[in-house]
């Protein structure tokens, strides 16, 4: 009943008066342990991240080396001429002959004629 008699101003005043009676919270005896644990977790996470970066970098270096070796084995033969590569690429059964071979073929044809 008494509550209904109060004006909004009085209600607001009473609510604001609560600020004077707020008790301080009790200390948490485990806070130190929690903080230490959080810090250790943080350090562990950082270490794990560094380990992952290191592992990834190592894998990339190894893969790079493998690709390099592979490309060297494909184009690495020093005796391979450009025409051989061309013949291989276009799947010619026999490699294209030399200029001298071509001359021989022309002279053979002319002789037969």
């Amino acid at each position: 009943m008494e509550k209904n008699k109060r004006t909004p101003e009085q209600e607001a005043e009473q609510t604001l008066a609560l600020l004077e009676h707020i008790r301080r919270p009790a200390e948490n005896p485990y806070l130190y342990t929690r903080v230490r644990e959080a810090m250790m977790r943080d350090q562990l996470q950082k270490r794990t991240t560094v380990q992952w970066v290191f592992a990834l970098a190592t894998i990339l270096i190894i893969l790079n080396g493998l690709f390099w070796l592979q490309s060297f084995s494909i184009t690495g033969s020093e005796n391979e001429t450009l025409s051989d590569v061309f013949a291989q690429d276009y799947e010619f059964l026999q490699p294209i002959g030399s200029y001298e071979d071509d001359l021989d073929l022309v002279s053979y044809t002319m002789d037969n004629e």
Binding site: T15, L18, L19, H21, R23, R24, P25
Partner: peptide
């Protein structure tokens, strides 16, 4: 709910 506010003032405390 602020734990430092008495239970009988819970409603007022929440509004505040």
């Amino acid at each position: 709910f602020h734990p430092g506010i008495a239970l009988e003032d819970k409603e007022r405390g929440e509004i505040l």
